[in-house]
Amino acid sequence: MDVDRLLPTLEAADLIALTREIAEKELAPRVEEHESTETYPEGLFATLGRAGLLGLPYSEEYGGGGQLYEVYLQVLEELAARWAAVAVATSVHTLACHPLVAFGTEAQKERWLPDMLAGSLVGGYSLSEPQAGSDAAALSCRAERTDNGYRISGSKAWITHGGKAGFYALFARTAPGGHGISCFLAPGATEGLSFGRPERKMGLHGVPTTSAHWDGALLDTDRLIGVEGQGLQIAFSALDCGRLGIAACATGLAQAALTTAVEYANERTTFGRRIVDHQGLGFLLADMAAAVDSARATYLDAARRRDLGMPFGRQASVAKLIATDAAMKVTTDAVQVLGGYGYTRDFPAERYMREAKIMQIFEGTNQIQRLVISRGLAR
């Protein structure tokens, strides 16, 4: 069922309508095949790029959509309601563009940004390492300055679109200590860069998540974004936006689960009545709907604050926490509504439940979100 949205402009309403059309035509018919066979949807992100959906929150000057963040996030939600893996990868691509948009020189932007925002170059975000996840200051991947640029050595982990992306926002150590991390815009086809086999994940099978290994790979000097030692500032400046992206994806996933459960409950009968008419199940569906609406409201509140230039870090953590916990609960309840059928792969409810779990983990675990929120309260 379509979501009844309050959108700021007629243009935004048209964009949501276009997104729904593309999602129904390009995503919905392909999701089951690729998720079940764990194969990558070749050409799909190029299609999204040609439709203008891969650069929505960025300036039109370089080919972006110039959209408010609240509009971009609702586009993400519509994509996630059809295919969560694609929506997450779209959010990661937007996150990977942020360093160049916010900290790059004009020359760097003119050179690379148009292709990135058009989707000709799809991005990955390479911050985490095998021993450095939530503690980003503990990175050990090194970038050694040479006469010809920077020589990169070390390993990275948990890279969405690993091995498929055209570029990576790479964070590596240029000096000891927490202020010794720098950011690079690394080409996907770099000599000395290789990728591990895709992780054997619980869900989101259609887009690979891999490790990366940098074996003395050389990056040109102009691949440095910002200045040396600015990497953590760059990484953290994007994380609140990334958390909102995941909140929107989680909300779309929860909406899909709710829709599946409601449709089933309206069709299935027991004891001579539709099961939706039994109060015990009707109340369960009501709680699911309330959770989805609450999740949407929290991420939109944070996004609107961002669009107004207001602080939104705490609200972003609240949104990520509320929306991803809601997705876990709503998808679990959807399986319950479908009963035995919900436990089978003949219905998408079990896939939704598997996909929801990771939402509570990446872009900062929900325990980290509680830490961020509580520290804000302590101040």
Rank of each mutant, 00 (worst) to 15 (best):
L7G: 09
Y341T: 11
V318T: 09
F271D: 13
V75E: 04
Q369C: 15
Q67F: 06
C249P: 05
S59T: 15
A326V: 03
F45N: 01
D287T: 10
I373C: 06
T39I: 00
V276F: 03
M116D: 08
F236V: 04
G166W: 03
T344H: 03
E21Y: 05
R82T: 01
R82Y: 12
F362E: 01
H34D: 05
L95H: 13
L53S: 05
G178P: 11
A290H: 10
I275P: 12
A172N: 05
G280L: 07
E199G: 04
L117F: 10
A136V: 13
R274Q: 13
G313Y: 02
R145V: 08
D277L: 11
D325Y: 01
F283Q: 13
P198L: 09
A12R: 09
L239E: 10
A289M: 08
A265H: 06
Q367R: 02
G52E: 11
M328F: 04
S211K: 11
A186V: 05
P311W: 09
F195D: 04
R306I: 00
S155W: 15
L127D: 01
S120T: 10
L219V: 03
I358R: 11
F362P: 01
F312Q: 07
L44T: 04
I234P: 06
W158L: 08
P311R: 12
H205S: 08
Y343T: 14
S294W: 04
I368G: 00
Q230E: 15
R145T: 12
Y58V: 02
E61L: 07
A136Y: 15
H205P: 08
A295D: 04
C97G: 09
G123R: 02
A247S: 13
G340C: 06
D301A: 14
K109M: 10
G64E: 10
A138L: 11
Q315K: 14
N148R: 14
V75C: 07
G188M: 03
R306M: 07
T174S: 13
F171K: 00
A291E: 12
G64V: 02
A261L: 06
A81I: 00
L95C: 03
A289N: 07
H213F: 15
E263L: 00
R273C: 06
Y352P: 06
M310D: 14
Q108M: 06
K156F: 14
R354S: 10
Y352C: 01
A295S: 14
R5P: 01
